[in-house]
Design a protein around this nucleic acid. Structure first.
Lengths: 267, 267
DNA sequence: CAAAAGCTGTCCGATTATCGGACAAAACAA
DNA sequence: TTGTTTTGTCCGATAATCGGACAGCTTTTG
């Protein structure tokens, strides 16, 4: 009851009007942005009545915020929503500011680097930077949306957030975590604790299939609250303890540089 | 009456519910994305009753789609809308696909190059590529939104659109054009005609203050309909007739390359 | 300083768009 | 063909929206 203090920014804050339904649907569609969503899937994911979904989707299509793939009838986020997003990005130019640094970081680490932000209970990947290496670990893409907390970048942000808030997010998302193949809750909580102590994200013991590890750090606003996360994934055993420490140090340095740039831009 | 045939994608297609108001407001705010909008300005721009605006803005703020600048009380597009935009962009990766080509084009032309798309009756700048040159002509920025038809890129797209559709857009936007300082309607229509004949955008005789000219070409989808426009601006007299033709040729070549890449990506 | 003007926040009854159960059509499978 | 699943539509009850009117607050003006 006290944990609702953290600004919630859910669609649940809205009265049950058309805008409310629209937001829920758009987020649900975004969670499937590469395949597109069938209507039945949206019913399952949102638990809204199907006629309502039908009606609202038609409205959203009429303004170009949602498009329908003619070939398979699936729904996707529309072009006009992307256009609106460009305008919104001009106020929140994290990716643009971070682009150069993260590209260089990726090159120098020989690892794929991700940039992610939090949106409510979701995480959204807003940048992916591939190293020159032939091997690319990880399967994220720009625009990918999923439950917040399941990537190294999220752990990096968690490590810089108040413990209460972390617990609140984890509790609300736990059922979504469990839908992920091979999720190991005990191991996840161990990683959370270890990350909180270290102040950086140590992604490990999370999926039962232990082939990859990850590291994450947060980009902080002037008040010390994380506004974005930088993450990277590597195959188990590729980095020894020293290399891992070195990698984290470099990531934190880059995060600091980006934070400074961001602050300078907005000021 | 027959010209409404072209898919309208306006908010006017919606019933007057909260979603309808929200779309109108978001577009209005986007039109001022660098300064932020005061509430009075939104009243003037949307001609919605102020209490309605107040209510809907509060709703939009509660989901993070709109933010309020604490220092001056102005409204801006919010972070979560940008996050949603990233997901939508993953389905419409024009900018990502075009980035390399347009950067190179800008370098080789020694001119600033813009990439824009149409969203309803608006144009949205989704890319700006500065040359190495010290002189940067033009004042557009990524995310800028304005009436469609007032930039070289728009003229390039107009030149590849059916005459009826062009006329419809121009007619509906004419009052917005006239609000622009120094707009010369007769000169504008001459440019429109010249562009239609040439098949490329020839931006000239548009503003009474004749210090700059512009060139534009369209990026076409497989059916030949423009999905984006490439534009550039230069100071009067910098290019002679031959240089201008050469510039246009290069731009069209780049547009073709981008179109192919886009087609390959979506297929 | 007082008054006026402008901007912003809130209330609440009438209106009206939404809501969603129920039915129908279409696509697909067996 | 028949059974099953997915999608499209109708329409009365309901509930959210709508927006005029009022009030607090800040800035400008005489």
């Amino acid at each position: 009851m006290t944990d609702e203090a953290s600004s919630q920014k859910d669609a649940s804050a809205l009265p049950a009007g058309s805008l409310h339904r629209a937001v829920i649907l758009l987020n649900a569609i975004a969670a499937d942005s590469r395949r597109g969503s069938t209507m039945t899937k949206l019913v399952a994911r949102t638990s809204l009545p199907r006629p309502t979904i039908h009606r609202v989707l038609n409205q959203l299509m009429s303004i170009g915020w949602v498009e329908r793939d003619e070939t398979n009838g699936r729904f996707n986020l529309g072009f006009d929503l992307a256009a609106l997003g460009y305008s919104a990005m001009s106020r929140h130019p994290i990716e643009r500011v971070a682009h150069t640094e993260l590209s260089q970081l990726s090159m120098s680490l020989y690892q794929t680097v991700y940039l992610g932000v939090r949106s409510g209970l979701d995480m959204v990947c807003i940048g992916r930077y591939d190293s020159g290496s032939q091997i690319q670990v990880g399967k994220g893409w720009v625009g990918m949306r999923g439950p917040f907390g399941m990537t190294p970048a999220c752990l990096g942000m968690f490590a810089c957030m108040p413990r209460d808030e972390v617990d609140g997010i984890v509790r609300k998302n736990l059922s979504r975590y469990h839908r992920i193949e091979g999720f190991d809750e005990a191991g996840y909580r161990r990683s959370l604790t270890a990350s909180a102590e270290a102040g950086v994200g140590l992604y490990d013991n999370i999926l039962l299939d232990r082939t990859t590890c990850g590291l994450g750090v947060a980009i902080l606003d002037p008040s010390g609250y994380p506004i974005a996360g930088i993450g990277t994934v590597y195959i188990n055993g590729w980095l020894d303890e020293n290399q891992r420490r070195d990698c984290l140090e470099r990531m934190q340095q880059v995060a600091g540089t980006i934070a400074e740039k961001l602050h300078a831009t907005s000021a």
